[in-house]
Write a protein that binds this DNA or RNA. Structure first.
Length: 216
DNA sequence: CGCTCGATATTCT
DNA sequence: GAATATCGAGCGA
């Protein structure tokens, strides 16, 4: 079986919402030492959200400019932006922006478990497959991702976390407003494989032109 | 099923 | 002090 490899840096040096849309169908893979042996954990990305730069996206952490927490969003594309929220959960993002954006990142909202399911179940303390990695806080817990991963390069297949190219793209990707925000609801920057049963939330009523991804 | 609410770090007002 | 890119427990229908 030939390796499909990682995307190179150029893939991430494009508009954040375009990268978010294209990441659906590819794989988030964690390499970890557990019980004295190496395991690969992860799954197929089924749901993402794009968050833009300063003054561009009112819902983005970057909207009011650079801070200690969001600095990765202003840094090199193709790296991890990991933050802690609600005093309980980590969220995992991939930095992505083109030359016209000062910041940007793609939140990975949900993956379909494909590898290392037994280890992820023990990290989560739950066995139910449909709630193992179906949410941004759940998947970081399942993969053992914490703030120490902030800034890590995701383009190296050998590193402890990376994005692996998949061979099959979803046939339909829909876009909707983002989850859990109150601002910029007009931006439909949540992207999902509508056929997947592993989404963090049901898609609800999809606007008629949503599958066209707002002109992308 | 659906709703409410607590946990509680970090940033912003 | 308030808000937040969340989750799961507890409750009622």
């Amino acid at each position: 079986m030939p390796k499909t490899g990682c995307f190179d840096r150029r893939f991430y040096e494009r508009r954040t919402e375009l990268v978010a849309r294209e990441l659906v169908g590819h794989y988030l893979i964690r390499r970890i030492l557990f019980n004295k042996s190496e395991h690969l954990l992860g799954g197929r990305i089924v749901e993402t959200e794009a968050y833009g730069g300063t003054a561009e996206d009112r819902a983005s952490h970057a909207y009011r400019g650079q801070t200690n927490r969001n600095a990765a969003m202003f840094g090199i594309p193709g790296r991890a932006y990991v933050y802690f929220t609600y005093g309980n959960h980590h969220c995992f993002n991939v930095t992505a922006r083109d030359r016209d954006q000062d910041a940007g990142a793609v939140l990975i909202r949900s993956i379909m478990p494909t590898q290392g399911i037994d280890v992820m179940q023990s990290f989560r303390g739950k066995n139910e497959l449909y709630s193992l990695t179906s949410g941004p806080g759940k998947l970081t817990q399942a993969l053992g991702i914490s703030r120490s991963f902030n800034g890590i390069d995701l383009t190296d297949e050998e590193s402890e976390i990376h994005i692996q190219r998949g061979r099959h793209k979803p046939s339909v990707i829909v876009s909707t407003p983002r989850i859990g925000i109150t601002k910029a609801l007009d931006k439909h920057w949540r992207f999902a494989d509508s056929t997947s049963p592993f989404l963090s939330r049901s898609l609800g009523k999809i606007p008629a032109n949503s599958s066209r991804c707002n002109g992308l």
